[in-house]
Design a binder for these strands. Sequence first.
DNA 1: ATCCCATCCATTTTT
DNA 2: TGGATGGGAT
Length: 651
Amino acid sequence: MLEGRGLNAEQEKAVRTTDGPLLILAGAGAGKTKTITERIVHLVCRGVPAEKILAVTFTNKAAKEMRERIVRALNDERMLNRPLSRGALGTPAPFISTFHGLGVHILKENARVLGITRNFAIFDRSDSIRSIKEAMKQVGVDPKQFEPRRILSAISREKGTGTTAGEYEIEAGNDYFKRTLARVWRVYEQVLAKENALDFDDLLLKAVRLLQADAAVRKHYQSVWSHIHVDEYQDTNDIQYEFTKLLAGEKQNICVVGDIDQTIYSWRGANIDHLLAFEETFPGAHTVILTKNYRSTKTILSAANEIIEKNANRKEKVLVTDNDDGEAIALYGGFDESDEARHVVERAQELIARGTPPQEIAVLYRANFQSRTLEEAFLYAGVPYQVLGTRFFERKEVKDTLSFLRCALNPESSSDFKRIINVPPRGIGKVTLLKILDGKEDTLPPTMREKVSNFKNLLISIKEHALTEKPSKTIKYIITASGLEKQLLTGDDEDKERLENIKELVTLASKYDGFEPREGVEKLLEDAALASDQDSLEKSTDTVKLMTVHASKGLEFDFVFITGLEDGLFPHTSDADENRDTEEERRLFYVALTRARKRVFLSYAATRMIYGSREVNVPSEFISDISSDYIEEGEEGYRDEQERSEFLIIE
DNA sequence: ATCCCATCCATTTTT
DNA sequence: TGGATGGGAT
Ligand SMILES: Nc1ncnc2c1ncn2[C@@H]1O[C@H](COP(=O)(O)OP(=O)(O)OP(=O)(O)O)[C@@H](O)[C@H]1O
C-alpha cells in the first residue's frame, strides 16, 4: 500500500517501523514531515484507530496541513475499498496540534481536578508583560532598573525547564537579581490567578505537573494515545521533552523527527540534547537517517552544506539530491536598505512576469524591523505582498473586540474589564475605574453610575448573544453595540483599516458558527490566543511572502530572497556574544537557504538606518563562506566609488 | 476625563 | 527613525 505514495526506501522503513521508539534524523528537505504524515496514514490503514494517534507540530498551520494531507490520503484509501478501523461516518481524526494546543486540551479536560475554570484566559506576551509590570509595581521594583521584558523572559525560561515560582525562590539564594525576580514572579502568579489566566508556559507546565502528580490522569492519556509523533523535535525545550516522555508511557510508541542543524530556538530554551540523547531516553529505539533531499537544486544544497559544515557543535551528515544544478545563487550589494529593497522587488517582478506565482517567492530577513523598508518598496511597485508576523490577533482593535467577549463571559477577568471599560471613550476614567475595582461603586456621582451601569448592561447583552447566537453574529453585535464601529467610521484612514480588521474578525469567527454558541466562542478565543505567525499564510494566496527566517521554518518556496546579510545583523551579534549564538546564527542561515527549491537571492546594504542614524556595514561572513562557484554577483547599487562617496556626503 | 505634545529609548528571533 | 510614555493644558 505504500507504492505510489512516493516514498524512498529509507522513508518507507520509517513508515513501516510502527512499534517502539523511532528516531528519524535528516537534513533539510529530506521529507521528514512527509514521512511522519505517511506513517500516520500507514498506522490507520494497519488498523490503529485514528483517534489514538497523536502528532505534535511546531505551528497550527503545520498541524492543519498534516491533518488535511492525512484525511485526503485516507479518503483515497477508502476509495480503493480498503477497510478502515471505523466506518465512513464520523471519521475519527488523529489529534494533531502544537504542544501548547495539547496543553490546553488536557487542562480543559481536567479543569476541575486542577481547581481552575474551563474558560481560563490565555495570556499572550503583551498580556504577560502588563501583568509583570503590575506585579513589579506591587512589589515595588523599578521597571527602569529591571526591564519587564527581561523579567518575563527569565521567568519564561525557568518555567520552560519545569521550575515553579516557589522552587525558584528557594534556589535563588542571595543573588540580588534572582531574589528580586523571585519576588516579582510570585506576585505575577497571583495576578494571573486573580485574572483566571494562564500564560504560554503554564499551558505546558501545568499540564506536565498534572501528568506527573496524578497517576490516573497520566494512565488515561497514555491509553488515549497509543502512537505519538513529534515533528521538529530539535527545537523542543525541557518541559516539552518531559511532556513527550510522560505521554509515551510504558508502550513508548513514540516517533520523533528532527535535524540538529535546524535548531533555531535555543534562545528560548530549546535543547538539542533531547534529540541527541533519544536513544538513551528510549532504549531499543530504531534510528532511520534520511539522506536524500527532494527540495532544492544541487547548487543550493552545496552552498547550504558549505555553510553548516563550519559549525563545530554538530554531527557530520550526508545530504544529496538528484535534482539539477539549477541557477547560481544571486548576490546583490545595495548602497542602502531602500536600494536593496528596490532590487528585491525588481527581481521578484521579473520572476512573476516569467510566470512564477507570487506565493512561490519569499523574502526573508533576520529581524522584524527590516520588513518596513521592504514593504514600502513592494507597496510602491504595486507588487502584491503579505508580511507575516504582524499578528492579526495581536492588533489592538482585535484584542479589544475579543476582550469584550471574554469580559462578558467571564466578569472576573479584571484585565479585560480594565481594557475595555473605556473603549471607545465613554467617560469612565482612571479614578472611576479604581473605585469600581475597590467595590466603592455606590460612592460615584449619579451620572457616572448611569454610565457604568450602561456598560454593564452592554456586557450582559453581549453575553446573551454569545450564549445563543452564532459567534460571527456575536462579534458583529459587539462592534456595533460597543460603539467601536461608530468611532472608527468617523476616524481617519488608519481607523478605517482598523474597522476592516474587525470585520475580518467577523469572517474568521464565522468558521466557528457550526459549533454550539458557547463552544464556538470558546474555541475562537482559544485559537486566537494560540495563533502563530505562519497561521495567517492560509489565506491571501497570490502574494509574495515577507517574513523572518524563524517564521519560515518548515516552509518551502521556489524562490527565496535572503536580505540584510550584513555583519552584525545576520549573523546578529549582541554584547553577550557566545559561541552558541554564532553557531545558531549559522543554523538560521542554513534554514533560510534550504527553504528554496529553485533559486536563492542574497543581498545586503552597505549602509543602513539604525535608530535614526546611518550605519556603515560590512557584508556578512556568510556570503564569503559560500564558494564563488555557486555565486553570481549582480551589479552594485552605485555605479562607482565616486557616486558612492557623493551619496555618503549627502547623507 | 481627554487630548496633545515633548521626551526617551530601543531591535533579535516567538508559541 | 518612530512608538511608548508621561506631564500638562483644556
Ligand atoms: N520520496 C519523495 N519523493 C518525492 N518528493 C519527496 C519525497 N519525500 C519528500 N518529498 C518532497 O520534498 C519536500 C520536502 O519535504 P518535507 O517538507 O517533508 O521535508 P522536511 O525534511 O520536513 O524539511 P525541513 O526540515 O526543511 O522542513 C516536499 O515538497 C516533499 O513533498
